[in-house]
Simulated assay, not measured.
Amino acid sequence: MNHIDKQYELEPNRRLTQIMTALILIILFGWSLSAIQFDELTVNGLTIAKNILLGLVQPDVELLFNFTNGVPYLLIETVAIAFLGTIVGAILAIPLAFLSASNIVPKPVAIIIRLLLVFIRTIPAIVYGLMFIRVTGPGPFAGVLTMSLTSIGMLAKLYVDVIEDLDTSILESMESLGCTMIEKIRFGILPQLSALFLSIIIYRFDMNLRDAAVLGLVGAGGIGAPLIFAMNSYRWEEVGSILIGLVILILIVEYVSNKIRTKLVRG
């Protein structure tokens, strides 16, 4: 027991640090609460919230099951935007990832490419959406371009993390055999990375599906535009139908993507 007591006494006293940290967190929490204006919570706002809930309970059944131009069609369009944007972004992110991996290319080159990827990730998806709408006009094409560009930044970063954790002994063996950089990537790296890359791509598709729904609010295709139109027109039954369809879609994609990622990682 004496030995344990001595070890306990040798432990640094962090009580002051813990108290200071708690005080700082409390101050930051109180300061953050000051930004919330409860005066804006009017009776009209509560009525709208109640109507949205009623719309979920009593949705527009015809719109919910109309496969021509109803919720199913809008959901399919949203999935198509997210899927195509993810595929394009995943392909374009691969060379950028290898160029930003310090164990593959010289460090100065890796730093420059990483700065480019940081810049791409800095801009929110909705800002890209507004920019592309000015170029291509409103519609799904703007959504696909937005999903592609936003996917590049995140996917390349995750690719790099995987690439830099590789066992470089295989690359050294191939280099001793006189293999070129392309051959090392093709035969020494990609076979090891394919499963992890696919898992990352599926994860990004899951995120893009949510972003695609939001991008519709600014006219970049998908289910977001009909949702905001229905809300602005106070058609709460249509709002309920769209939200129900969106929730069901997200749950299905979440379940399937988790199953696939689990099999890829374990396999």
Rank of each mutant, 00 (worst) to 15 (best):
S34T: 12
I36P: 12
I36T: 05
Q37I: 13
F38R: 12
D39V: 08
E40S: 14
T42G: 08
L46P: 04
I48K: 14
I48Y: 14
K50H: 09
L54K: 03
V57A: 13
Q58W: 14
Q58T: 12
P59Y: 08
V61R: 11
E62L: 07
E62Y: 07
N66P: 12
G70N: 08
P72Q: 01
L75K: 01
E77F: 06
A80P: 04
A80F: 08
I81V: 02
I81F: 02
A82N: 03
L84K: 06
T86Q: 04
A93R: 01
A93Q: 02
F98Y: 14
L99A: 12
S100C: 13
S100H: 12
V105A: 01
V109Y: 08
I111H: 10
I113M: 01
I113Q: 02
V118F: 06
F119A: 12
F119C: 03
T122Y: 15
I123C: 13
A125S: 15
Y128T: 02
Y128W: 15
M131R: 03
I133F: 09
V135E: 07
T136W: 13
F141D: 00
M147P: 04
I152T: 10
Y159R: 04
Y159K: 04
V162T: 04
V162M: 09
E164T: 06
I170Q: 11
L171Y: 00
M174V: 02
E175C: 09
E175S: 15
S176L: 14
